[in-house]
Every structure is written in structure tokens, then in C-alpha cells.
Deep mutational scan, measured.
Amino acid sequence: EPLWIRPDAPSRCTWQLGRPASESPHHHTAPAKSPKILPDILKKIGDTPMVRINKIGKKFGLKCELLAKCEFFNAGGSVKDRISLRMIEDAERDGTLKPGDTIIEPTSGNTGIGLALAAAVRGYRCIIVMPEKMSSEKVDVLRALGAEIVRTPTNARFDSPESHVGVAWRLKNEIPNSHILDQYRNASNPLAHYDTTADEILQQCDGKLDMLVASVGTGGTITGIARKLKEKCPGCRIIGVDPEGSILAEPEELNQTEQTTYEVEGIGYDFIPTVLDRTVVDKWFKSNDEEAFTFARMLIAQEGLLCGGSAGSTVAVAVKAAQELQEGQRCVVILPDSVRNYMTKFLSDRWMLQKGFLKEEDLTEKKPWWWHLRVQELGLSAPLTVLPTITCGHTIEILREKGFDQAPVVDEAGVILGMVTLGNMLSSLLAGKVQPSDQVGKVIYKQFKQIRLTDTLGRLSHILEMDHFALVVHEQIQYHSTGKSSQRQMVFGVVTAIDLLNFVAAQERDQK
């Protein structure tokens, strides 16, 4: 057995438009009618409502009807409940999964919650491996369901041993009777949507819809739904939504950006999952974080739909894509998950301010006199920076000697690579993860907040409520011999709460 199987392995699926269902090699399930009293909570997966979006479509000038398939009504709160249950049931049916076995899954959280929910009911041990950027709410729900959680670096490539995929496979090879159901490759993922989600949409719309818009992560949702719609409703256009920084969209030119990270969760990847059939997507749109969270908040405030950030991405694209539809036509959007997962993220004004998705003037509360002053007023001194090749031991000596707790790590040209902190280095040394002679590049981390000289002290204040420091950066445009230009970030300084307090105190003292 291989040590790991690539999540982007070539698909062996034989589905073709027009091929009889009787030739399918898979076990198919028909939607079942729910009894009045459910035998367990797993029976509350599927049969989610279709809700008309009344205000947002009109606000953006849509002539067509805009409908939302509300997947956050599933038992675990997301569309991923469907595939989690289906993968477990299919693994039980073919004898792969037996009582007492362990389920391991690399996930952005929602599939993990679905699997942990099913594992709690069915009696399996469950280990979820997820990147650090995923919300604390997801972690809390997983723990409450009895799952064990392993976190991995957000910026690790999918084929790196440190990625959530790599760590999951390492655990599988170490733990007896453990299984990775593997949402990236498992046919049960798109089949769950082909058999149930798509049929529900067709039934709820009486077979009449002209466009379907869905955000894409593993691709199982859009693949399964689109294949069924292509068979039953061939005139329906399928629109895929991919965040900026991901590479799922086609044509490839759409993916060209210097951005590699994004805040919206559960969609987009740096590889093409095996289950994603991009041939059934008629057109791709890219979405960005700001519009995703703005539209998610709009869905909550104006439509009462308590959905997550990827739902915002989907609707932001839908109001663009559906401009081509006329009166009497219908566009369906998939709202994948609930706001429950993001209470401390985009639902929080403070978080939105820190990330730059909300401006101070958007909030009406009274601010102190210094709130709208610029960061450049602080008069920061030149920063202490270190090269990635310097040793951890030497870096600790320098920081202690100069009285700093942290320093930016830059390359020879001064471009920011990340940050090192005294606390992080000492804990890594004590844990045996690094040696004093190791290069400081081994303990770089990139989960820090950046701020510009033109940003306000109010925004800085919000950042420092949650973080010990902020890195002050400025952009530099560099022209190359080819005539092309590129933008790079340079370090201007490091600012802490002490710097802000000293500035405010000094100004008030001078005024007296």
C-alpha cells in the first residue's frame, strides 16, 4: 500500500453525458421521505430548503428570480454533511469501515464536522487534520463531537509532509485500522450531490432553472449537481466560483495573481482535486475576500440567511453572472454553511477592521482624538531585521541585547519573508524542534498583521487588541530589464502597544 495517494490523481470516472444510468458502476440512493420521529440526527441530513432572495437581486438590477439552496440546514450545519454520511455509508457497505475503526480526514473543517457527527452516532474514533487558518468555532464544535484535532501550517503546499493532507496520511500509516475516506478522491463525494442535492433542486424548481452558481473546494458539490442538471435540464448554465489565490478556475489566465492566501474558508485549493470535473462548468468567476464577507453580511442583514463567507462569494458572483438572465428565468445559488463557524471572524466588526474589510468610518461609535491620525505620526525608528541564514542562537542574543521581542526576517534585497519572535524561538528550542545552530528560517511564521503608514491609529489599535505587534510595510514598484514591473513589500518598522501608548501619553502631556 502506498504511503500516500495524491489528492489530485487523474480521475478514473467514466461518467458521460447521455450515458444510461443503468451502466453506472456505483451504488445510487434515492431521496427517502422522513418519518415524523427521526431514529437519529443523521436522518436530518439532506432535504434542505430552497429560499427566495428578495432584496439583493433587485438591489443589483437582476431581472431573474434568485433562489438560495440553504445547505446550513443540514444536521452539522453545512453541505459537507451529505458527503460525510455518504462516504461512511459506502465504506461500511463495501466492508472497508468496521466497528471500532478510526476515521482520519484532512479538511478545512466542515467535512470534519460532518464526519465527527456521523462518527459520534456510529461509534468510530475520528481524527481531523486541518490548517491553522480555520476558525476556532470549527475546532470547538469538533472537540465537542469527540474528534481529535491536529493543526497544520496554512501556507504548507498540499504535497508537503507538513500539509493537512501529508499529516493525515502519516497518521494513517501509524494508526492500525485507520482510514482516510479522502473527500478529494472519493466518488461518494460527487455521488452524494448527484443522487440527492441535484434531485432536490430539480424537484423544488419543478425542473425549471436557467443558471446554477456554486463555490468550489473539493469540487464534489458542483460536479455532482452539474452532471445531473446537464442530464435533466441541459439549458442550465453552470457557474463556478473560485477565490483569488486558488488555481481551480479555467482558463488558467484567471488564476494569475501574486496573491497566495485568502481568508474565506472551505473553497479554493492549490491543486485540482480528483473529484472535480471542470468540463461540466460553463464559466468560472474569481471572487475576493472583501466581496465575500460584504455579501455574507448582506445576506444575514437583508435576507435573514445566517450563512458563512463562501455563501457571500457565491452570491457576489451570482449578481454578476445572472445579469444575462431575463424576467421569468431563474438562478439558484448554493449557500454551503452557517455563520456559526465564523462568529469571531467576519461577523465581528473588530475582525473586519483588522483585516481591512471594514473602515473605521463605517462604525458610528465615538472615537478618541488620536483615532484618525496616521501611523506615520508615530515617528517610528528604523527596524531591526535579520536574514533567514542567521542562526536561532545568534538571533536570540541580538533580540535580548537590543531589547526586542520580535524581528522581521528579510532577504538580501529587503523583501519581507516573515517574522521571528523570542517566545516562538525559545519554545521551539525547548520542544526540540530546532537547535541553536539551525537557521532562523526554520522558525519563520507568517501569521502576523501588516499595516501601512497611511493607515489610521484606530486601525492599529484594533490590531493591537488581539496581537502583540504589527509590521509596518510599504510597497515598492521595481522595474526589470524586460520592461515588466513587480510590486514588493518592504519593512518600514515594527509597532507595539507600548509605542502607541507612549505616543498618546506624550501628545497629551505636551497639550497640557
Score class of each variant (00 low, 15 high):
Val241Thr: 09
Val241Phe: 02
Glu244Lys: 09
Gly245Leu: 05
Ile247Thr: 10
Leu254Thr: 15
Asn255Gly: 04
Asn255Thr: 02
Thr257Tyr: 08
Glu258Thr: 15
Gln259Val: 15
Thr260Gly: 15
Tyr262Lys: 10
Tyr262Leu: 05
Tyr262His: 07
Val264Asn: 02
Glu265Val: 02
Tyr269Cys: 02
Ile272Pro: 02
Pro273Ser: 04
Thr274Ala: 02
Asp277Cys: 05
Val280Asp: 13
Lys283Val: 10
Trp284Met: 02
Trp284Ile: 02
Phe285Ile: 15
Lys286Tyr: 05
Ser287Trp: 02
Asp289Ile: 02
Phe293Trp: 02
Phe293Arg: 05
Thr294Asn: 05
Arg297Tyr: 02
Ile300Phe: 07
Gln302Ser: 10
Glu303Val: 02
Leu305Ser: 02
Leu306Val: 02
Gly308Thr: 02
Gly309Cys: 07
Ser310Val: 02
Ala311Val: 07
Gly312Arg: 07
Gly312Phe: 02
Thr314Asn: 02
Ala316Thr: 08
Ala316Phe: 11
Val319Asp: 02
Ala322Val: 04
Gln323Phe: 13
Glu324Val: 13
Leu325Thr: 07
Leu325Arg: 02
Glu327Trp: 02
Gln329Ile: 02
Cys331Tyr: 05
Val332Arg: 02
Val332Ala: 12
Val332Asn: 02
Leu335Cys: 15
Pro336Lys: 02
Pro336Ala: 04
Asn341Leu: 02
Met343Phe: 07
Phe346Tyr: 02
Asp349Gly: 05
Met352Ala: 04
Met352Asp: 05
Met352Val: 02
Leu353Ala: 10
Leu353His: 02
Gln354Trp: 13
Lys355Gln: 09
Lys355Trp: 07
Gly356Thr: 07
Lys359Asp: 02
Glu361Tyr: 10
Leu363Trp: 15
Leu363Ile: 10
Lys366Met: 11
Lys366Asp: 12
Lys367Glu: 11
Lys367Tyr: 09
Pro368Leu: 15
Pro368Phe: 08
His372Pro: 02
Arg374Asp: 05
Val375Pro: 06
Gln376Ser: 09
Glu377Lys: 15
Ala382Glu: 08
Thr385Trp: 02
Thr385Asn: 15
Pro388Ile: 02
Pro388Tyr: 10
Pro388His: 08
Ile390Trp: 10
Ile390Ser: 10
Ile390Thr: 15
Thr391Val: 14
Cys392Tyr: 13
Gly393Met: 11
His394Trp: 02
Thr395Arg: 07
Arg400Tyr: 14
Val410Ala: 11
Val410Ile: 14
Glu412Ile: 13
Glu412Ala: 13
Ala413Ser: 13
Gly414Phe: 12
Gly414Tyr: 09
Val415Arg: 07
Val415Pro: 02
Val415Trp: 12
Ile416Ser: 11
Ile416Glu: 02
Gly418Pro: 05
Met419Ser: 12
Met419Pro: 11
Met419Trp: 11
Thr421Ser: 10
Gly423Asp: 05
Met425Ser: 02
Leu426Val: 10
Leu426Glu: 02
Leu426Asp: 05
Ser427Gly: 13
Ser428Thr: 12
Ser428Tyr: 09
Ser428Ile: 14
Ser428Asp: 15
Ser428Asn: 09
Leu429Met: 13
Gly432Val: 12
Gly432Ile: 14
Gly432Pro: 06
Gly432Phe: 10
Lys433Arg: 10
Lys433Met: 12
Lys433Val: 10
Ser437Lys: 15
Asp438Asn: 12
Asp438Ala: 02
Gln439Trp: 14
Gln439Thr: 14
Gly441Ser: 10
Gly441Cys: 08
Lys442Trp: 11
Val443Ala: 14
Val443His: 02
Val443Gly: 13
Tyr445Gln: 02
Tyr445Met: 05
Lys446Cys: 12
Gln447Leu: 11
Phe448Ser: 11
Lys449Gly: 05
Lys449Tyr: 13
Ile451Arg: 10
Arg452Pro: 02
Arg452Ser: 08
Arg452Trp: 14
Leu453Ile: 14
Thr456Ala: 13
His462Asn: 05
His462Cys: 10
Ile463Trp: 05
Ile463Thr: 13
Leu464Phe: 09
His474Trp: 02
Glu475Met: 08
Gln478Pro: 13
Tyr479Ala: 12
Tyr479Ile: 11
Ser481Gly: 15
Ser481Pro: 02
Gly483His: 08
Lys484Thr: 02
Ser485Asp: 10
Ser486His: 08
Gln487Met: 12
Met490Ala: 07
Val491Met: 14
Val494Trp: 02
Val494Tyr: 02
Ala497Val: 12
Ala497Phe: 05
Ile498Phe: 08
Ile498Thr: 15
Asp499Leu: 05
Gln507Gly: 08
Arg509Thr: 14
Arg509Glu: 12
